[in-house]
Design a protein around this nucleic acid. Structure first.
Length: 266
DNA sequence: ATGGCATGACAATCATGA
């Protein structure tokens, strides 16, 4: 049996307009097959379809002005046609563009830009919990229909203390609060596995570092960007890494990409 | 110290991020 590995990835680019050169360089270096992007901050009319096509990728996107915006890039050489595109989270009245899903190569790819929540006593935190509830409800049906499903994105949740540079400082704060971690645990309970934790990893592995206070150099980060896989996909996963190098570039995104390799039977 | 830095809309500051 010949396996054709499928490399899937997620990256919060914090403005695709500003980060396009970084993205094109990273696509050439890593040649991921399916890339979930968050915080594109572009309307659909503004999406750089031509530049990304020149790099060998099709673009599917759901954007808005100024904030949010998600996209999935598919490598032409590896990916057949995409199907069953969903551009917003069903079951939630929400103008914010934070969810995009499609099926390609027999695999359901779900890209999410989970709400930040701002602080646990804010209205935005309540919105975050509502969004998480709607995601779980919608995923039930998706998981029933798609044994091979991957949920990739900026979750804005650090699932455990080992994902936090200073757990005492962040205890019960937004991104680390108990209700948020319970929502993450519900996703695992629904049949998903954290691809990053399937393998031994370096200590202090994070995906986001504040722009301020030299946080990256001081390893003051959080692991909030994740790739969750159904059990069927987890069995085929041969590795999951964080491309920390992208955070070292000039004018970087504050997030680094996460990449998982799947040895899918063809 | 409610800031530090970055982005976008807008035209001097303000909303948002995490």
């Amino acid at each position: 049996m010949t396996d054709r590995p499928l490399r899937i990835a997620t990256w919060n680019v914090n403005s695709l307009r500003v980060r396009l050169a970084h993205l094109l360089r990273w696509l050439a270096e890593r040649s991921p097959d399916a890339v979930c992007l968050q915080e594109t901050k572009l309307t659909d009319e503004q999406f750089p379809v031509a530049e990304i096509a020149a790099a060998g990728y099709r673009s599917v996107y759901s954007g808005q002005k100024t904030y949010n915006g998600v996209a999935i890039l598919l490598r032409e050489e590896r990916c057949g046609p995409e199907e069953d595109i969903v551009r917003e989270l069903p079951g939630l009245e929400d103008p914010q563009r934070r969810l995009l899903a499609l099926t390609v190569e027999g695999t359901r790819i779900v890209c999410g830009y989970f709400p930040n929540g701002q602080s646990v006593d804010s209205e935005k935190y309540q919105y975050k919990l509502r969004w998480l509830a709607a995601l779980s409800a919608w995923l039930q049906g998706e998981l029933a229909r798609h044994p091979r499903l991957a949920l990739l994105g900026d979750y804005n949740i650090a699932p455990a203390d080992e994902d936090v540079h200073d757990p005492a400082l962040w205890k019960d704060q937004v991104l680390c609060s108990v209700p948020e971690r319970e929502a993450f645990a519900r996703l695992l309970g629904a049949g998903l596995e954290d691809a990053f934790r399937l393998f031994p990893q370096p200590e202090r592995s994070y995906t986001w570092w504040d722009y301020r206070n030299l946080a990256f150099r001081r390893k003051m980060g959080l692991r909030i960007d994740h790739i969750l896989l159904t059990h069927a996909l987890a069995r085929s996963c041969t590795g999951c890494t964080i491309d920390v190098g992208m955070r070292r570039l000039e004018q970087p995104s504050d997030h680094a990409p996460v990449v998982a390799e799947l040895a899918l039977p063809s």
